[in-house]
């Protein structure tokens, strides 16, 4: 079951790549000298996985049309640990003392590779890959040009996805979320960050915030479902004039619409509930807030600027 952990190649790069380090120095274990480096290229089978993790510093990933992974990495105070089989390449850093300093990864992956990255405070920037996962705690995460699905998370770092081909999931706490040019299902959640979805082409969108604002500006599929939830944040939906059925509820927020709408009779105490259709109905758009405002506007016209 733990076959994964049987490393085909476990390379403590410090040993191999810092020949200048003298044995005498090593015995003293001067932390400042524990710099390690990896600079190598290895083969990766098609559909293989590249897994990168570090605590602080930076992860930068680009892609190319070769079945090879090029890795350039350096760590101030940690030991890089590099494993490779033909189906998986992984790079991580460890240290037996608290402050390992910054680590930098500069990695080029096959365009069809799956990429998994983890960091605490390091920023993660990726360009390419089939399926991409990026998890950070305080680091910013930015992924682009993903042919498959992207999953990105951070607690406080910003979260950005651009040009994703087959679905996106984003989770943040205070993180602002910005997703542009996304095809496939979109799930986005942030507690206090804003969620901005632009140029999306999805038949399923679900967003949730507590206090963050939400802005949606994508195409709608007549058979699609689009759900936007917030407690106190505003929700602004730029909706093209195709067949849409709206279901908008708010407890104490304002509702504005560029399209004609009707207030349903029998609304509950203090609550506004609007159901209306344009162009015969179709795409189901639901927006719910407690105290945030909901605005439905035509694309290109922002009633916010009035």
């Amino acid at each position: 079951m733990c076959a994964r952990f049987v490393s085909a190649l476990c390379l403590t790069a410090a040993m191999a790549a810092t020949p200048a380090l003298l044995p005498a120095q090593r015995q003293h274990r001067n932390d400042d000298d524990e710099t390690s480096r990896v600079d190598t290229t290895v083969a990766l089978s098609s559909g293989g996985v590249v897994e990168l993790s570090l605590i602080s510093g930076e992860i930068k990933v680009t892609s190319w049309n070769r079945d090879q992974v090029r890795i350039k990495a350096s760590s101030d105070g940690g030991l890089l640990q590099f494993d490779a089989t033909n189906g998986r390449v992984s790079l991580t850093v460890r240290s037996d003392h608290d402050d390992m300093g910054d680590t930098e990864y500069d990695v080029t992956i096959p365009a069809g590779a799956r990429l998994i990255t983890h960091s605490v405070s390091a920023d993660i920037t990726t360009d390419g890959g089939s399926d991409v996962e990026a998890h950070a705690v305080s680091g910013d995460v930015s992924v682009s040009n993903v042919t498959g699905r992207a999953t990105i998370e951070s607690v406080s770092g910003s979260l950005t996805a651009t040009h994703v081909g087959h679905g996106l999931r984003v989770n943040g706490v205070s993180s602002d979320i910005k997703a542009t040019d996304i095809t496939g299902d979109i799930n986005a959640q942030s507690t206090s960050g804003d969620i901005i979805l632009g140029s999306t082409h999805s038949s399923f969108v679900h967003t949730e915030t507590v206090s963050g604002d939400t802005r949606f500006g994508g195409t709608l599929d007549r058979a699609g479902r689009y759900d936007f939830h917030s407690h106190s944040g505003d929700i602004v939906l730029a909706v093209p004039a195709i067949g849409v059925t709206f279901d908008i509820s708010t407890f104490s927020g304002d509702v504005q619409s560029d399209y004609p709408m009707t207030l349903q009779p029998g609304s509950e105490v203090g609550q506004k509930h609007m159901e209306f259709s344009i162009n015969g109905g179709g795409a189901r758009v639901t927006a719910e807030t407690f105290s945030g405002g909901v605005t439905v506007e035509r694309p290109g016209h922002s009633s916010h600027e009035d």
Partner: peptide
């Protein structure tokens, strides 16, 4: 960050509860 956001959520919970106390049958 976590504490600030927990506070935001707790406020949202409290506001929803207060409203619910006035209108206990609201599905919304």
């Amino acid at each position: 960050v976590i504490e600030k956001n927990l506070h935001i959520i707790n406020q949202a919970i409290a506001q929803s509860r207060a409203a619910l106390a006035r209108d206990p049958n609201s599905g919304f």
